[in-house]
């Protein structure tokens, strides 16, 4: 007979053991020192499936302390079921306070968005990254992409962008638009929409990007240049929501979700759930908006 005691288990603060946290911390510091470069890290298994935010959790749980206020969003929303599950996990493992209020959070984990509201110097944002290698679409082998990054040899990437332009009249990369960080490394900003890409550049907050399954993490420090790849005559553009207002708040100038209530009725709602709440209350927070070139 097995005593049930055998299966009892207590967990460390923030779940991950201290030795692994320390390793991840060392790697985060190096990632800050080499902006946009992908640092390999151990990436221990988590009780969350690979591809569901394990990398984000590694970074968040290595950073978090008892005084932090934690916010987590998925597709811009605090309400997304996976965000709910991860929030519950972080709360159980740290007893930290959690919030939906972007301004109140000290540590924000996100999948596929950077909040509309400008993040400040006292905030750290952790992005869940499915595929950290921006060159994967042009070179499938890691040992080759490593060399390309080392030599800043991005010719294949430029050719791919040019081909996209020739075929479609524009660079067709949607979310995860490739960027150059501090004039050196080409990096994927995780699949955030182009709308959010300009907000990575010269921002007051620290950005940590972590890909658990691929075991790589990279950073964009505060006040660091992040430039979307573009040609002199084919400029980077964000998604356009021309003449569109939010059906829930009447607000505009924000990334919108396209919602179908039936086959024929389409409406738009502001994607960032906390931003939407604030717009509805008439407390629209400060934003940094990008103007598409004419």
């Amino acid at each position: 007979m097995i005593a049930t005691r055998k299966f009892e288990h207590t967990y460390n603060f923030a779940f991950i053991d201290e030795r692994t946290k320390r390793e991840i911390r060392r790697k985060i510091l190096k990632a800050i020192a080499i902006p946009g470069y992908q640092v390999p890290y151990s990436s221990p298994e988590m009780p969350i499936a690979r591809g569901w935010g394990t990398g984000g959790l590694h970074a968040s749980l290595s950073i978090i302390g008892p005084d932090d206020v934690f916010k987590i969003i998925d597709q811009g929303s605090d309400a997304s079921v996976n965000a709910c599950n991860l929030r519950d996990f972080v709360r159980r493992m740290t007893s930290c306070r959690t919030t939906f209020d972007t301004a109140e959070a000290t540590l924000i984990q996100t999948r596929h968005r950077k909040p509309e509201e400008i993040l400040t110097e006292r905030q750290i944002i952790v992005f869940q990254v499915p595929q950290p290698e921006p060159l994967r679409s042009v070179e499938r082998y890691e040992f080759k992409t490593r060399i390309m990054h080392a030599e800043a040899d991005y010719a294949k990437m430029w050719v791919a962008l040019y081909e996209s332009y020739v075929k479609f009249g524009a660079i067709m990369n949607g979310a995860g638009y490739p960027v150059r960080v501090n004039g050196r490394y080409i990096m994927t900003p995780s699949p955030i929409p182009r709308w959010d890409v300009p907000n990575l550049s010269m921002a007051p907050c620290l950005h940590v990007f972590s890909a658990g399954r691929e075991k790589r993490l990279h950073c964009v420090p505060p006040f660091t240049r992040v430039e979307p790849l573009e040609f002199e005559d084919v400029k980077f553009r964000v998604e356009e929501f021309r003449e569109i207002v939010c059906a829930a708040s009447g607000g505009d100038r924000a990334f919108m979700d396209e919602i179908y209530e039936s086959e024929s009725t389409r409406k738009f709602v502001i994607n960032d759930s906390d931003f939407l709440d604030k717009v509805r209350l008439g407390q629209r927070p400060p934003q940094r908006l990008f103007q598409n070139p004419v």
Binding site: G76, A170, N173, G174, A175, E239, F255, E258, N271
Partner: peptide, 11 residues
């Protein structure tokens, strides 16, 4: 994945 999908839809 509606954010990423919206982004490519817009393109």
């Amino acid at each position: 994945h509606y954010v990423t999908f919206q982004s490519s839809l817009s393109n």
